[in-house]
Design a protein around this nucleic acid. Structure first.
Length: 461
RNA sequence: GCCCCCAUCGUCCAGCGGCCUAGGACUCCGGCCUUUCACGCCGGCAACACGGGUUCGAAUCCCGUUGGGGGUGCCA
């Protein structure tokens, strides 16, 4: 039978890198096995959940290209199911009510957790009372995990946990068991931080008579450079932010797939279809994986280079339009269309694009003073080169090849290699020592503007 | 404290008892290409945490130590 997996976010914030990775692995597994991916919104905590967050999360998945086959189901709309299950457990004596507040419990046990105080007090439902599951005194529950093997939890180490809050709302552990059974989930793939909660769900599962439980796969955590679980406070974890910073969805997906997993043939950067083809839950590693922004950037650069030119331009366009120098009225569309090849080999993110080409659209180049100092002041014979270039370019054929050859030979006359000779021209025209290939850029800029900039620079010298 | 997980280059991933003088990728450092930068190519630095077993043979299996992480809510 084809696997059924699920991604079950609680919509208390934007999509987190860790959640995105969990969703991704579920999706990869579903696609690889021709299974079904269910989306389930775990909004039993009404206080912290919101529709805006759900919408934002959905939009982000849409961007990533991760689609769900079923759902979304909302736990907030399935309350009765959970309450029925709770009632069943209570009726069978497998759950009991307790009227202690957290503060009272802390006082009783000195912060050691719940001691089973109300186990045999025979309390019924009522205001201020929670329903707790009666964990067996003896024995153990084994979590069958395809990544970690069997993990055993002694019942003696588990306390009687809350399954229905005093306000009558079900806790996720209960909702989890009920939903996974109801939705016929075959594999639960999620973060390792949930491993400890699994025996509780399994206990409920068994008490509810659901039969064979799902197979689990607890993914290694993604950690920051201090080795700690990625957190909202400390780390850049919002997938949306990466999108805004010019990362491609293909890069995010590819890179995230590499955290905790690797293809058997060692080819790391590749189309997602190939990742799907190679993906196996059993190949996932156990140790936590450090999120490395440098490597993400590298993958992003490769994805940018793999893009067709027109697609790259379309994706980069919003970043250009957001640049402070952008002016819709005077923007040279033709020049923009021609700029693709100059940008593709250089940009590592879409956000890099404007700064690579700004000089082509600015009225005057933004002069970097350090560059000016280095080339125009300290460099060899800048004035001479500029004079020669102004003279030679005044009537040269305006093509990349001719501009190139012209400058090469004029440099030779001054005993300068092309590398040196091009520098003053580059700084005069682009304002910087580094940038796209010069002669291609000059061709795009045009004779008049090039000469104007060369003369302006010569003046300043 | 208690419970659970983990442990190969700085980082990610390979390795699943002999093919390992440990392989690939990112980073870094050289070199080549070259009009700068970038791209690309070539090369280099760099790891089996430690101690005991098991075995003819261990990075690979077992035990312990140490180290790291996660959980310990009427959050999920």
């Amino acid at each position: 039978m084809a696997p059924r997996v699920r991604f079950a976010p609680s919509p208390t914030g934007y999509l987190h890198l860790g959640s995105a990775r969990s969703a991704l692995f579920n999706w990869l597994y579903a696609r690889h096995t021709d299974g079904t991916l269910v989306l389930r919104i775990e909004d039993t905590d009404r206080e912290r959940s919101s529709q805006e967050m759900i919408d934002l999360i959905l939009r982000t998945f849409d961007w990533l290209g991760i689609e769900f086959d079923e759902g979304p189901y909302h736990q907030s709309e399935r309350g009765q199911l959970y309450l029925d299950a709770a009632e069943k457990l209570f009726a069978a004596g497998q759950a009991y009510y307790c009227d202690l507040t957290p503060a009272e419990i802390a006082e009783r046990t000195g912060g050691q957790g719940y001691d089973g105080y109300s186990r045999d007090r025979g309390l019924g439902p009522g205001p201020g009372r929670v329903l707790r599951f009666r964990v067996p005194d003896e024995g153990a529950t084994v979590v069958r995990d395809v990544i970690r093997g069997d993990v055993e939890f002694e019942h003696a180490d588990l306390e009687d946990f809350v399954i229905v809050r005093s306000d009558g709302s079900p806790v996720f552990l209960l909702a989890n068991a009920v939903d996974d059974a109801d939705m016929a989930i075959s594999h639960v793939v999620r973060g390792e931080d949930l491993l400890n909660t699994t025996p509780k769900v399994l206990l409920l599962w068994e008490a509810l008579g659901y039969g064979e439980p799902p197979v689990y796969a607890h993914l290694p955590l993604i950690v920051n450079d201090q080795g700690k679980k990625l957190s909202k406070r400390r780390d850049d974890v919002a997938v949306e932010d990466y999108r805004a910073r010019g990362y491609l969805p293909e890069a995010m997906v590819n890179y995230l797939a590499l955290l905790g997993w690797g293809p058997r043939d060692d080819v790391e950067v590749r189309p997602v279809a190939e990742i799907i083809e190679q993906f196996e839950l059993t190949d996932i590693s156990k140790g936590s994986a450090r999120f490395d922004p440098k490597k993400l950037e590298h993958v992003n650069g490769e994805k940018i280079r793999a893009l067709p030119l027109d697609e790259l331009l379309a994706l980069a366009r919003p970043y250009v339009e957001a640049a402070d120098w952008f002016d819709a009225a005077s923007f040279d569309e033709e020049r923009w269309q021609a700029v693709g090849p100059l940008v593709q080999e250089r940009a590592r993110t879409l956000a890099d694009v404007p700064s690579v080409i700004d000089f082509l659209f600015l009225a005057d180049p933004q002069v970097d003073e350090a560059s000016w100092e280095k080339i125009m002041v300290k460099g060899p014979d800048a004035a001479g080169v500029l004079d020669d270039a102004i003279a030679a370019y005044a009537d040269a054929e305006w093509t990349t090849d001719v501009l190139h050859e012209t400058l090469r030979s004029l440099g030779e006359g001054r005993d300068l290699k092309l590398g040196k000779a091009q520098a003053p021209v580059r700084v005069a025209v682009t304002g910087r020592t580094v940038g796209p290939p010069l002669f291609e850029a000059l061709e795009l800029l045009g004779r008049d503007e090039t000469l104007r900039r060369l003369e302006a620079a010569r003046q300043r010298l």
